[in-house]
Design a binder for these strands. Sequence first.
DNA 1: ATTATACATGTAAATGTTGACATGTTTCAA
DNA 2: TTGAAACATGTCAACATTTACATGTATAAT
Lengths: 191, 191
Amino acid sequence: MRKLKYAILGLINRKPMTGYDLTIEFDKELASFWYAKHSQIYPELKKLTDENLITFETVIQGEKLEKKVYTITEKGKQELKNWILRDEPLEPTPKDVFRLRAYFIELMNKEEIIQQFTAQLEKRQKKLAVLQSAMENLLETKDISNIISEEFGDYIVLKGAIMREQAYIDWLNECLAAVKASSYKTPSPGL
Amino acid sequence: MRKLKYAILGLINRKPMTGYDLTIEFDKELASFWYAKHSQIYPELKKLTDENLITFETVIQGEKLEKKVYTITEKGKQELKNWILRDEPLEPTPKDVFRLRAYFIELMNKEEIIQQFTAQLEKRQKKLAVLQSAMENLLETKDISNIISEEFGDYIVLKGAIMREQAYIDWLNECLAAVKASSYKTPSPGL
DNA sequence: ATTATACATGTAAATGTTGACATGTTTCAA
DNA sequence: TTGAAACATGTCAACATTTACATGTATAAT
């Protein structure tokens, strides 16, 4: 599968980067659809170098701090272009711990259900707000008129992330409304 | 983390099951938010048994086929109830290979983009249709009026899956509309 | 009768991922 | 000037997950 391979190849293809830059990029720009820890990135960079898909140049930062700036090779570009056009079957739906808890709703009483769903809703709303302000910023600073551009790629995945979060929030609100409307009364313990 | 532990505990809490039953359950009922292969399930059942969270009874099916029917213990129920009320921070957004490809849109030309997004749209629409017919069936066969019930749990996660797929489809349609409306012309090769 | 499919349970090697350990430099603010 | 935060690169053990290997029974249709 080697998905991390293509995530890294795609990023380095955009512009030469260090392992540290990749780590930041995964945390910031790709966070809404991919992530990787530095402990996974550095070994993968070594592997890609061994496979001649990337090369690096050691650059001295300041007095003595060495960093490795990686650049994609022709071979790397070919593999990347080959991957991007592959038509693969739909992945299994990703795991979601909150939905797993929601499925086992029979283990909670009405108050606990409302508490759980409300807490989740608040977290999701905060996340949505962050995405929306990122979108405002993107629209102010980037030109997305050319669909064959990194900027348009940035735009559509952010748009997708906002729509996904909104749908999650809509679902949580629907669940909360149904639960609150329910006449089921939690038996008072000890009465 | 041991998330599979709680998925299994929750299912066995609903009713006693074999490892095979769990495998089917993950593939069918839980597919929209969890999954596990039998090669992961059997060792986990062994572990949960060692931890006294479940016990099993060997049942003979037909002449000699042995199956192990697992039942949750009191200790298992306690751990499950404890887990369901835990308030944990939002998980990182799940990885999504299609969004990763979409992000690197600059690697495709207009025709390729339309082809990729259309193919994805068709797959998602088929998936949505499956979910919608599952919902029709659920509403016909199950009573979801009691919110503290397995049936209501089944209902809300299915509702959530439908809303999530619809949002994905809406996003794909928006992307396709933007791409098709774009005046950017792919340079004809060789002219 | 035979055969395909579903039922049933496991293990082992490889791969993917996380969390902790380990080390050192540079920059900026107090 | 000193201390915190950011910059920078790595390894290792443990855990999670997949793929392949491995075996056998029961049932239903042909």
